[in-house]
């Protein structure tokens, strides 16, 4: 889990620095990471708030960006639904892209050790996300523009590290190829729901390839 804590460093710094440079007070910038804890939603929200976007538009945008979490919840539901609310609530709070990527072991969340591991990983992401945000808040108050440093590449590199080794059959390969092409095309076309649409399309392709391979 340590490399993932480091991998969100650039985004945390970006979030903190962009927020203060767009008129957030340092406390507001930090509160956003403490409360919302969702990198991509925060980055987009900062730009929208800075442009005085109406609240409803902002909230709908945040919803659209966060909609992928529905898929995560559905995917791990059978592993978690037997747990008490006091387990499911904290897991939900830290169910980020990174934690979800760690949820694929068939027994994930289901033994005591695996549950403790998942919660430790999830909350360590939370703690580090907030430390990186704090550094960004400080850096953003002192340095001019950090947005052109290519900080977003770190996220791409981490996700490549998570995805490529998981490609073990034709179905997953088809999913990945479809996801990359469709997400890029949908985003270029300006579709608001590009991420969710690309995910659903590529999951369908994976499902059908898997079915074809088996029959």
């Amino acid at each position: 889990m340590l490399p993932l804590n480091l991998a969100v460093l650039p985004w945390g710094i970006l979030c903190g620095s962009l927020a203060v440079q767009n008129g957030f007070t340092p406390i507001e910038a930090q509160l956003m990471s403490l409360l919302v804890f969702a990198g991509s939603a925060q980055l987009v929200a900062i730009e929208l708030i800075a442009k005085n976007t109406p609240l409803l538009t902002l909230l709908i945008t945040v919803f659209i960006i966060s909609a992928r979490h529905f898929l995560y919840g559905l995917s791990v539901r059978h592993k978690l639904v037997g747990h008490r609310l006091r387990v499911r609530l904290p897991v939900s709070f830290v169910l980020t892209d990174e934690l979800f990527a760690f949820s694929h072991h068939p027994k994930a969340y289901q033994t005591q050790a695996r549950l403790v591991y998942a919660l430790s990983a999830g909350f360590s992401f939370y703690v580090f996300w907030n430390i990186w945000t704090l550094i960004g808040v400080v850096a953003g108050s002192l340095l001019p523009d950090l947005t052109n440093l290519g900080l977003d590449f770190a996220i791409a590199a981490t996700f490549i590290a998570l995805v490529i080794p998981s490609i073990k059959n034709k179905a997953t390969l088809a999913t990945v190829v479809t996801a990359g092409i469709s997400a890029t095309s949908f985003k270029v076309m300006g579709l608001e729901l590009w991420l969710v649409l690309a995910a659903l399309l590529s999951m369908s392709v994976g499902y059908w390839v898997d079915k074809g391979v088996q029959s």
Binding site: S40, R68, L71, Y72, L74, S75, D97, F100, A101, S103, H104, D152, F153, I155, A156, F159, I160, L162, V163, S166, I167, A171, T172, T175, V176, T178, A179, G180, I181, S182, A183, T184, K187, V188, W194, L195, A198, A199, L200, S202, M203, S204, G206, Y207, D210
Partner: peptide, 21 residues
């Protein structure tokens, strides 16, 4: 089975546009 493809699907749909666009 359908949902088992969600991790590679979503993660790839996030990183490829960062790189390509």
């Amino acid at each position: 089975k359908f949902l088992s493809f969600s991790a590679p699907a979503v993660l790839t749909a996030i990183w490829v546009p960062i790189v390509a666009l």
